[in-house]
Simulated assay, not measured.
Amino acid sequence: MTETDIDASTAPPVRVGLVDDQALVRTGFRLVLDAEPDVEVVGEAGDGRAALELVDANRIDVLLMDVRMPGMDGIAATAQVTARHPETRVIVLTTFDLDEYAFAAIRSGASGFLLKDVRPQELVAAIRTVHSGEAALSPRVTRRMLELFAAELPIDGSAAAREDAAADPAPLDALTTREREILVAIAEGLNNGELAERFFLSESTVKTHVGRVLQKLGARDRVQLVILAYELGLLAPHGGAPSDR
């Protein structure tokens, strides 16, 4: 047995909460997660207010949060959960690939975005990814998130708006050149393995750089780094670096 196997077998399970107004959806997710030895479903909730009560009463590592629910919706609940329990990571669930409500929940502090018809292995992988401190956002979703974010800015996210957002570059002053490169690559949707490949670094070195970027910019996770990179003018709405012209 390798050291990695030993660590995996002795690590406590990821404690998960399920929030959806449809009991059938919660049951389906529970069936998938109960089959995983390193995941424990701690409880369920049918709306945002019940989700808050669930997290207040239990230690939840990852909360699967539906967006559209009666009463308190997933957007308001996500904002309150992440404010009251910053150690809890929220993965937003939605029926629609381009759901602006899901984007609003991400802006409220969620660390991931999944469609409800996600394949079982992808659901489990997203939970593990978010629990490890990364974001469960594919490059495609990241690009769409930036497009939606750009639409909320003045002048429809034009170059002039990005220049205004980047008028105060003070947050970037604390970053080294490499850390700034890492920030841009994270905003493009790269995970640690892809960062290591792009910059010819070991994954442990990448993790160190990412940790320093998070700390220096006061961001809780990679999702906040994506938004911050756009606000600072480091990324254009289509997901690439802005043109100097």
Score class of each variant (00 low, 15 high):
Glu53Phe: 10
Leu214Ile: 06
Phe103Gly: 05
Val81Met: 04
Gly211Val: 03
Pro242Arg: 11
Thr94Asp: 10
Leu98Val: 07
Glu147Ile: 09
Asp56Gly: 14
Leu18His: 13
Ala159Leu: 13
Gly43Phe: 02
Ala160Arg: 14
Pro237Lys: 03
Pro13Ile: 08
Pro237Asn: 05
Ala136Gly: 11
Gly233Leu: 13
Ala185Ser: 11
Leu183Gly: 00
Val32Pro: 03
Val90Asn: 01
Val67His: 08
Leu175Asn: 13
Thr82Met: 12
Val92Ile: 15
Phe29Asp: 07
Val90Gln: 02
Ile91Glu: 01
Val213Pro: 01
Ala45Glu: 03
Arg107His: 12
Ile127Gly: 07
Thr94Lys: 08
Leu148His: 14
Ala50Lys: 14
Ala160Tyr: 11
Pro86Ser: 04
Arg30Thr: 10
Val19Met: 14
Leu64Ala: 13
Asn191Tyr: 07
Thr82Asp: 03
Val41Gly: 01
Arg245Ala: 14
Met69Leu: 10
Glu87His: 10
Val16Pro: 13
Thr4His: 01
Asp173Gln: 12
Thr82Trp: 02
Thr2Val: 02
Ile106Gly: 06
Ala104Trp: 00
Ala196Lys: 11
Asp66Glu: 13
His85Leu: 02
Ser132Gly: 11
Leu175Ile: 08
Ala167Met: 08
Pro86Val: 05
Tyr230Ser: 10
Leu232Gln: 15
Ser204Asp: 15
His238Trp: 04
Leu33Val: 02
Arg220Cys: 00
Gly233Glu: 09
Ser204Phe: 12
Phe149Ile: 05
Glu87Ala: 12
Asp156Gln: 15
Asp38Lys: 00
Val90Gly: 04
Leu93Arg: 06
Ala110Trp: 10
Pro169Lys: 06
Pro86Gly: 06
Leu98Ile: 04
Leu234Pro: 05
Leu33Arg: 00
Leu115Tyr: 03
Arg140Asn: 06
